[in-house]
Design a protein around this nucleic acid. Structure first.
Lengths: 336, 336
DNA sequence: AGCGATTATGACAGCGCTGACGTTAGCGTT
DNA sequence: AACGCTAACGTCAGCGCTGTCATAATCGCT
């Protein structure tokens, strides 16, 4: 069925090793031999068997990309970024959805390392610090997280700084009663901290009654919790959110209570997912360069692979605040 | 470094083949031997090397999922559906974005078949009929398309029927001047046909001036083209769209011209992407069960693999019209 | 007691490729 | 003329498994 190197070697009347050399562009080959081999390859339609190469060389040219949820609008762009550099470097990527379940994450790592992937990218890992560092020492790993794992190759989103800036923005607009709708996860309270930082920077005391933490972030859940929040503390005039999805829920809740954003409630999001500019009012949010993030983390993984795992780095992406409509700007729908 | 079957075999004092048998649950093994081997596996932390297995057996337990664009909101759910059944059956999935480029699609098929994937899923392929059938005969393939390739395993979205129903819906609401904003691609004009079908069913003559075809569908492009359309034919009172993304652009265009949906312009979409219920007015659209579609096409691929490629089937998913706000229903934002 | 059938296991080759090393012919050098 | 050197190959073992076949032990049955 499949054409092998042996077939090519016979046809070109050279050794298998010579064929291997021209296929991989390595070693010294005379131009005539190279052409002879190339012709044979073309005529026979030979395609190298990467599985066999993987077994022999230990490199499979495949990596695993582990993410919590591809349906979270944050991730598609990121995946695209990862894939673009992976593809350019000759790697293919296994996509693994963990459904935010640490056990599934561990399972996937197991399975994929059994498939001898050359490296693993962990995005928004739900593993605890200990598990994470165990995985990082055992495999070639690049991590995307807002946490600060030790001795690893990681790209971070500065969530704390980001939320401080967003909260400050609200304070500078004159808001004093500022709520927060966030994600409750013991492993990472960076963004919540940023919210507190922002309040503190403007001399506003933190008030636990103004904070709602969700076990997982969905628009529906955020809507429910926000209705609750606005009932309990109707004096709130602004809400900072963990991300845009939460912000959407917040805006829906406000609307359902007859409070229009931004006049009756200012809202800021985080991430700048595509949706953010498509809803009305358009979301003021912190832009996270997701595609670039994907590229960065894949680049990082490449370095880890090249260094055979012996590589540490901690890079941060830059955030950029996008002022749209949901907290007071004047411009409306794009025209034309 | 890695623990191999040989190590396990030595430790358990059996042959490698016996270890292989217990790992793969095949053949007759006495309970005592099985336990002995299992213990050795556990103690050594043995993990089978799937690459080696792949070379020896010809099966890699990996499949390729080829899609045009993961950032198109139609696809994440579908990918999830594919992955869920793949994972359940022990397969991993390579994600391949073609950027709607047929050449990239072909390249990916080449690369991944070099990696000896057991099967390939083609979604929304941009290949022409000839290329498609060539790929389908050469590899184990399941196809998701609205076209009707011969001699293949395919799942279809009945786009023609769907658009007929959406257009009819508009006609039944009393609209006579109904426009269409669609995708121009020679290989597939099913949805456009459906639009014409819908008009015809209500005795409305087709009018080319009411139709705009985009080379690729983005919200921005749809907005531009629709402004153009509404300038050229302001008498239009309703627009049927190829998909929800186009519908969003249409609604933005209408808003920018001071025409509010649904009062001044009724709009219907297609696909029911998550966005559809998040924008205001919420989109009336045709629900496509994307997650299920993913499951169906992966199930289909499994059959193709089991039949060693000798399997044909043409399944259709069921569509369900979702009446929301963008063409006349009364309900507004969800409450609580 | 002798036979085939069944159960449990091992031996062996080989999947298609690569890494390490070996070989050869041709060249310049002193 | 003997030597070393390099370019241009070839040889060989083996990556970690699986398929196929062989083998040994046990069993029931006549």
């Amino acid at each position: 069925m499949a054409v092998t190197m042996r077939d090519v070697a016979e046809k070109a009347n050279v050794s298998i090793k010579t064929v291997s050399r021209v296929v991989n562009n390595q070693g010294e080959i005379s131009e005539t031999t190279r052409q002879r081999v190339l012709d044979a390859i073309r005529q026979l339609g030979y395609r190298p068997n990467i599985v066999a190469r993987g077994l022999a060389s230990g490199r499979t040219a495949s990596v695993a990309l582990i993410i919590p949820q591809i349906t979270d609008p944050f991730f598609p762009e990121l995946v695209l970024g990862v894939e673009s550099v992976a593809h350019r470097q000759g790697y293919s990527v296994f996509l693994c959805n963990t459904n935010e379940d640490p056990q599934q994450e561990l399972d996937y790592i197991d399975i994929l390392s059994g498939k001898q992937v050359d490296g693993i990218i962990l995005c928004g890992s739900r593993l605890d610090a200990e598990q994470l560092s165990a995985v990082a020492t055992r495999h070639h790993v690049a991590i995307l997280t807002s946490r600060r794992p030790a001795h690893a190759a990681v790209v971070s989103i500065p969530g704390r700084t980001g939320l401080r800036r967003m909260t400050s923005h609200l304070a500078e607009l004159g808001h004093r009663k500022i709520g927060y709708v966030g994600l409750y996860w013991p492993g990472d309270q960076e963004r919540l901290q940023g919210y507190y930082d922002g309040l503190a920077a403007h001399g506003i005391g933190a008030n636990d009654r103004y904070v709602r933490m969700l076990p997982t972030i969905t628009v529906d859940l955020a809507r429910h919790m926000t209705r609750d929040l606005l009932h309990a503390a109707p004096e709130i005039t602004a809400i900072a959110c963990y991300n845009d999805l939460a912000a959407l829920g917040v805006m829906q809740a406000a609307a359902s209570l007859g409070r229009k954003a931004p006049e009756d409630l200012a809202v800021v999001g985080f991430d700048d997912i595509p949706l953010a500019s498509l809803v009305s009012p358009q979301l003021t949010t912190m832009h996270v360069p997701k595609y670039m993030l994907g590229q960065m983390v894949m680049d990082l993984l490449l370095k880890v692979i090249a260094a055979k795992g012996d590589y540490e780095e901690h890079a941060y992406v830059e955030l950029r605040m996008i002022v749209r409509e949901s907290c007071g700007a004047k411009n409306r729908l794009p025209v034309g």
